[in-house]
């Protein structure tokens, strides 16, 4: 709808600018470009093909995981267990692959991820419990579960198939890994599903106004459940990405992935109250978090200041979101 109104009023630059800024991903895109330009000017190593490739490689795991998180947040939920589910998936894959059966390992990994995510969704939608508490409980339980399952050991991954996402699809000055292509493809597919299918319309509808959606015949609980289960598939892909990037299935990895994904989603312009935002914004949001960390390291800034910068950015993003939605309403 923003597109049609923008086209109609294209004669006025002001209207054109408004049409652009009212896109949820406009803010994150501007922020990403601004931060990148800043680091390109202030450091000599930021804007090099090798570093740009590295930025994407460092983003794929959290970026893929955050696609699932975006879905959950769009229906006004939250998933604090996403990282723990992914890690459980990786250690299941790692342990079974150590016995040599790669296909079984992948199948069980997918089953564990979708199963755990569906369990979240089932408890939240059937028992009507707050997502924050349910997934917090799952986060704690699954993290311990992964440690018990592995006896706190990690499994080195030797299968080329399991680590394929970390290997280059094209090498040249700019190395592109299979994992980057998968991340981009998943973002496009999910964006299409959200914007062009009836299911997508329902997801936004129950995030925006669950009662109105119910009155219009949407089965709110079923759609919400489908969202949590589908998120599990993205957690599985994120786990595969993680094995490609670091060929070790490690129960102590990605302990803060839940917060990192929420940061990416929020910086990417999705509303924590549901119903507004999208996965393209999250894609950009995940890149922003990594660009900031990478750039500040290259500028020689201490890690603790990097965390402060990320924290401030999250608050700015939420403030901008609130400001925009209030401006629209009035």
């Amino acid at each position: 709808m923003a597109g049609t109104s923008g086209a109609r009023q294209a004669s006025s630059p002001r209207a054109l600018a408004f049409a652009f800024f009212s896109q949820p991903m406009a803010g994150p895109l501007i922020a990403l470009v601004a931060i990148s330009v800043f680091f390109s000017l202030t450091t000599s190593t930021f804007l090099t093909p090798r570093n740009i490739s590295l930025l994407f490689q460092q983003s794929v795991v959290i970026g893929t995981l955050a696609l699932g998180q975006t879905l959950v947040i769009l229906v006004a939920g939250i998933d604090l267990a996403c990282g723990a589910i992914m890690v459980l998936g990786t250690v299941v894959i790692g342990s079974l692959a150590a016995d040599g059966n790669i296909a079984l390992a992948m199948a069980m990994g997918l089953l564990v991820c979708v199963g755990a995510a569906s369990l979240n969704g089932g408890i939240i939608t059937l028992l009507r419990l707050p997502p924050f508490i349910v997934t917090l409980g799952m986060f704690t339980a699954l993290q311990a579960g992964a440690r018990l399952y592995t006896n706190s050991q990690s499994y080195p991954i030797r299968s080329d198939f399991l680590t394929v996402l970390g290997s280059p699809a094209f090498s040249g000055p700019l190395t592109v890994t299979w994992g980057m292509l998968l991340w981009i493809a998943l973002t496009i597919v999910l964006s299409y599903a959200l914007n062009q299918t009836a299911w997508g319309v329902r997801v936004y509808a129950i995030g925006n106004a669950p009662n109105a959606a119910r009155l219009n015949g949407v089965n709110v609980r079923r759609v919400a459940f489908s969202v949590y289960s589908l998120a599990g598939i993205f957690y599985f892909f994120a786990g595969w990405q993680a094995l490609g990037r670091t060929p070790i299935a490690d129960p102590s990895a990605y302990q803060l992935a839940n917060l990192d994904t929420i940061t990416a989603v929020v910086i990417g312009g999705s509303s924590l109250f549901g119903g507004r935002g999208g996965v393209v914004g999250t894609f950009i949001g995940a890149l922003i978090v990594i660009v900031l960390k990478n750039g500040l390291t290259q500028a020689g800034i201490d890690s603790l200041y990097q965390q402060i910068a990320t924290g401030i950015l999250v608050i700015l993003a939420v403030a901008a979101d609130q400001y925009m939605s209030r401006a629209k309403r009035s």
Binding site: T48, T246, D250, A253, K293, T297, Q298, S303, L304
Partner: peptide
């Protein structure tokens, strides 16, 4: 030349060293 905070695990050791070595 530089230092970084890790969570004392493989994953964070890898990205931190990537960033340090690039700069």
């Amino acid at each position: 030349a530089g230092s970084a905070l890790t969570q004392a695990n493989v994953e964070t050791g890898q990205s931190s060293m990537e960033n340090l070595l690039t700069s």
